[in-house]
Structure formats: C-alpha cells, structure tokens
C-alpha cells in the first residue's frame, strides 16, 4: 500500500467514523432537536404546566376568535387539536389554515401562549396563480404540520 493510499483510507475511515458518531448523537438528542411538539405529541406526553414548550401545527379554519386583546385559536395536526390563548402581537403571516408555532405552557389542556410565530410552507407563487389553482380545484392544503 502506498502512502497516498494509506492517507486516502485514513481520511475515508475518519469521515465514516465521524459521520456514524454524529448520526448516533443526533438520534440520541432527537427530542431536543425538534423545534416544537405537535398536538398529538402533547396528548402522548402528558407535559405539566411547569414546562415551557413550543406547540406547532396548522391554525384550524374558522377557529380564530378575537376578544379585545385576547386571541383564541385551535392548533391542529389533523389527528389531534389543542386550543391556544394568546395576548399580543401576531406575525403578518398568521392565517387560518397556515402553519403556526406557539411558545408557552399547557395549563389544563389549554395552551397559554407567550409568543406566537407563523410558519410558512415551501410554496411560492403569485396571487393570480393561487386563485386560479383554487378555482380549478387543484388546491391541496399542505398538511406539513409534522
């Protein structure tokens, strides 16, 4: 084996080992790498009100109710839903049927949000195209609330 080959093998093995180690670490910390929990996750985990966490999903159509400063809406991942109460400024992209991430605490099954962020999907198009797609019935809501 020439020195070049030895160096090549060394680099390849090193990369492989590093890649495997990283994969293991990332798998082990998978829970803290997710940015938010879905409503189904929350149902499963029974998290108390002492823990601050993020809830993500789609804002359920027709669920947004404004009561003075207070905004109430329902977050859904199509399998489960969680009601959210929020007092404050909503981002411009906050819309029914769109993605949302709320940070706060789960108290008696209601999510008390301290901050609400909007999440958007990967589709970009002009308004006319979106309208035309909706009219033709080709519109499929992106259920990306994984």
């Amino acid at each position: 084996m020439t020195r070049k080959q030895r160096r090549l093998n060394f680099v390849l093995l090193g990369m492989l080992a590093l890649g495997a180690a990283t994969a293991l670490v990332l798998t082990a910390f998978n829970d803290s790498l997710v940015y938010f929990y879905s409503p189904s996750d929350l149902k499963e985990r029974q998290i108390g009100p002492e823990r601050r966490l993020r809830l993500g999903g789609l804002v359920e159509e027709g669920s947004v109710k404004r009561d003075g400063q207070t905004i109430r809406f329902v977050v859904t991942d199509t399998a489960a839903t969680v009601g959210v109460v929020y007092n404050g400024q909503l981002p411009d992209l906050f819309r029914e049927g769109q993605g949302v991430v709320a940070e706060g605490r789960l108290e008696n099954g209601v999510f008390q949000a301290a901050e609400v962020l909007a999440k958007h999907d990967e589709n970009y198009m002009p308004k006319e195209v979106a309208d035309a797609l909706k009219k033709q019935g080709h519109w499929q809501e992106e259920k990306s609330a994984k």
């Binding site: 990283t22 990332l26 938010f36 999440k119 970009y124 198009m125 195209v129 990306s144 994984k146």
Partner: peptide, 30 residues
Amino acid sequence: IIKYSVDWWNTLHQPASVTRVGMPAVDPAM
C-alpha cells in the same frame, strides 16, 4: 445536516422548495 435538517426534525424554517422531489414548489416567474 443543514440540507436535511428541515426533513429530519420539525423546524420553524420551511422545507426545501427548489430541490424537492418532483416539481419545484416555486412558480416559474419566481
């Protein structure tokens, strides 16, 4: 990790538009 972070974990950042399997999700004008 950067490339696939949006697929492996849920993130605030949206998934890939241009390199997604099938059609890019960006209108030709954009």
